[in-house]
Computed example of a mutant assay.
Amino acid sequence: MIATLTPIDLLRGSSDYYKFYKKGEKISLSTLIQSTLIASSNEAAYALACWHSGSESYFIPQMIRKSHMLGLTNSHYTSCSGLDRSAYTTAQDMSKLAKVFVSKYTTLASYCSLKYFEFNGKKVSNTNKLLLAHAAVIGLKTGNLVGIGSNLINYWIDEDVHYISIVLGAESQESCYELSKRIMHNYASLTASES
């Protein structure tokens, strides 16, 4: 088990609700990965970037280079957490990234399907509420930024067909989930009418 020291308490713009670690606490990489993917922890993403590259400022150029290699030409990353408002992306780029993630990084992607993880006796639920409400949903990633909106990359399988939907910049978490549910329902109706 590889462990790393967490370099910060709470990132600016992050919620106390998702604060799981204290600065200097030793956390396993698998726990940090689960925290990032299941609980959408910005602090865990930051700790992983620092573990990988020594600092966030060294990590970002590598992240940008990798995104270009993947063909994400309409995205610009300025932080590892997504809290920086000068970053941007598109639904098309997020769809490309999601497809690569679920097909090439299956072990990591499988964390997104977990309904919770436990750390220090605390049960931390998955931030994707659709995962908890719909059996077909198996991930993928939530994101919220005050003043910008709520985002959800939703991944589900229906009769061996894999689907990914992207909602970016919804007014609230509730409307984000409602839009995602509508997309799922529309795909289900479409496939049913084709049968």
Rank of each mutant, 00 (worst) to 15 (best):
Y46H: 14
L48V: 12
L48H: 03
A49T: 09
A49S: 11
A49G: 02
C50W: 09
C50E: 08
C50T: 12
W51C: 05
W51V: 03
W51D: 04
H52D: 09
H52A: 13
H52K: 15
S53K: 14
S53A: 15
S53C: 14
S55N: 01
E56R: 01
S57T: 08
S57L: 13
S57Q: 12
S57A: 10
Y58A: 12
F59L: 08
I60Q: 00
I60H: 02
I60T: 00
I60L: 05
P61E: 13
Q62S: 09
Q62I: 08
M63H: 02
M63L: 15
M63V: 08
I64E: 01
I64L: 08
I64F: 03
I64P: 02
R65P: 02
R65W: 11
R65D: 12
R65F: 14
K66F: 15
K66T: 14
S67V: 10
S67Q: 02
S67R: 09
H68R: 15
H68C: 10
H68E: 14
H68T: 11
M69S: 13
M69W: 09
M69H: 14
M69C: 13
L70I: 06
L70V: 03
L72I: 12
T73I: 10
T73F: 13
N74Y: 10
N74F: 11
N74L: 09
S75E: 09
Y77A: 00
Y77W: 14
T78S: 07
T78P: 00
S79Y: 11
S79A: 11
C80W: 06
C80N: 06
S81R: 00
S81Q: 08
G82T: 03
L83R: 03
L83Q: 05
D84S: 08
R85Q: 10
R85G: 06
S86H: 09
S86A: 08
A87S: 15
Y88W: 05
Y88D: 01
T90H: 01
T90S: 08
